[in-house]
Amino acid sequence: MSFFVAYRDTSTGLLVTDRRNIATRYLKRPCFVLDVASTIPVQIIYRLVTSRRQGLFGFLNLLRLWRLRHVSELFAKLEKNIRFSYLWIRLIKLLCVTLFALHCAACIYLWMAFNYKSKELTWIGSQIHGFEDRSVWFCYTYA
């Protein structure tokens, strides 16, 4: 890891550029633990250790959403920057949020179709007969 982003010290008001001080400030924050936990490959661990605690691994997989916080911070910085048009940044942000919501909805529909007991009662199962034999990409785009 490399630490290049300087910060302003609250007590003196000076800009701190020492990498060691930047690193210790980041390591002391509670966000560091969640950043590390969100990068753990939970699905690989789940496949290696197939235990009865499937719900725990599913919950740990949701920690990956913690990384979206950085995207939100990026858009907040871009909106404040006077070199970029505020309108275009807001439109791009709206487009990204819409695409993310569509992706989440498609993943939920696809998960329900593959895991529901009677597959013909799901939305995808009623439209495409034998969708289990099709590719995942086809079912995802259809969802």
Rank of each mutant, 00 (worst) to 15 (best):
F3A: 12
W111H: 13
Q127N: 04
S85L: 07
D133A: 14
I108P: 14
I89R: 01
H129M: 12
I89F: 05
T10M: 13
A143K: 00
V136K: 01
C31S: 15
T141N: 14
D9E: 07
F57Y: 09
R25W: 06
S85V: 03
R8G: 10
V97F: 00
Y26D: 09
W123F: 08
L48T: 13
A101V: 05
K119Q: 06
Y86G: 09
L99P: 11
L74I: 00
C107I: 04
M112V: 06
L121W: 12
N115T: 15
S126Q: 13
I92G: 10
A37M: 06
S72H: 06
C104V: 07
I44R: 00
A106G: 06
R90A: 14
C139Y: 06
I45N: 04
L95H: 10
R69P: 08
I44F: 13
P41R: 05
F138W: 07
N115A: 10
T17I: 07
G58A: 07
A106K: 00
Y7V: 15
T17V: 11
D9P: 05
A37H: 00
R67T: 06
I108C: 15
V36C: 08
I40H: 00
T17G: 03
Q43D: 15
T98K: 04
R67Q: 07
L102N: 12
C139F: 00
S2L: 11
T98R: 05
V36Y: 04
H70S: 15
L94P: 13
F32N: 13
C139I: 01
L27V: 14
K119N: 06
L60F: 00
F84R: 01
E79T: 01
V42L: 02
Y116R: 10
I40Y: 05
I89S: 05
A106N: 02
T122V: 04
T98V: 02
I124N: 07
L95E: 12
I82E: 08
I128K: 02
